[in-house]
Design a protein around this nucleic acid. Structure first.
Length: 202
DNA sequence: TGCCCGATTAACT
DNA sequence: GTTAATCGGGCAA
């Protein structure tokens, strides 16, 4: 396990934090695994919830970095974001897929499926498997029940268009671990290789 | 107050 | 490939 990430890690542009999160380990009450797919949402980005300005739902995005922004999706699922940058900038990283490594039995029970590849491959599935709900909205990522650890070695990170949005679809702000079996969707062949990102903990 | 629609998923045909 | 499920946010009225 790499070094525990502290608030400083998130006090950077969402475009730096998002690729750096690939390969990091996210645990909620000890359950979780390696981040293999995330998306960046910048406050100047029409696809971001914060683009319209502060509201009750997106308030956490306008707060300090290093906190969880959890929202209800399609009235059914929860989706989890990690707030970045200095307070007020309202940018966040959406967790889209995890390679499950810790608490497999718990995740299988919560999800009602046995296949590892279906446990955390999608933002709604991640929250169901890790037990993340509205109760986690606004909680610090650097304290229980959360724990995040930097990746240890270099990882080959690729980028491509984000999924499921209807605005700013041209922005290549979806990041993934190249070749992972646990992505919610494969990246297009020839997707941009961001490069071997060094492990980094700040 | 009412209406439309979404950073989704699973179960259909 | 298509669609139902399900609900709260955001905006028009």
């Amino acid at each position: 396990m790499g070094k525990r990430l502290t608030r400083g890690f998130f006090s950077r542009s969402v475009h730096e934090v998002a690729p750096d999160l690939i390969g990091a380990v996210l645990l909620v009450n000890g359950v979780g695994g390696r981040l293999v797919e995330v998306e960046a949402y910048h406050h100047t980005d029409p696809a971001a919830h914060s683009f319209i300005g502060p509201t009750e739902r997106n308030a956490v995005m306008f707060g300090p970095p290093g906190y969880a922004y959890v929202y209800r999706s399609y009235g059914i699922h929860w989706c989890m974001n990690l707030v970045c940058e200095p307070a007020g900038s309202a940018s966040a990283v959406l967790i889209r897929a995890i390679e499950p490594t810790e608490g497999l039995a718990v995740m299988r029970r919560r999800r009602g499926v046995a296949d590892e590849r279906l446990l955390c491959s999608g933002p709604g599935r991640v929250c169901e498997a890790l037990g993340v709900t509205r109760a986690h909205n606004g909680l610090a990522l650097t304290a229980p029940p959360f724990a995040i650890f930097a990746r240890k070695g270099d990882e080959e990170v690729i980028a491509g268009p984000r999924i499921g949005i209807t605005k700013a679809m041209e922005k290549p702000w979806r990041y993934g671990l190249k070749g992972s079996r646990f992505l919610s969707k494969p990246f297009a062949p020839g997707a941009t290789i961001v490069g071997k990102m060094p492990s980094r903990a700040r």
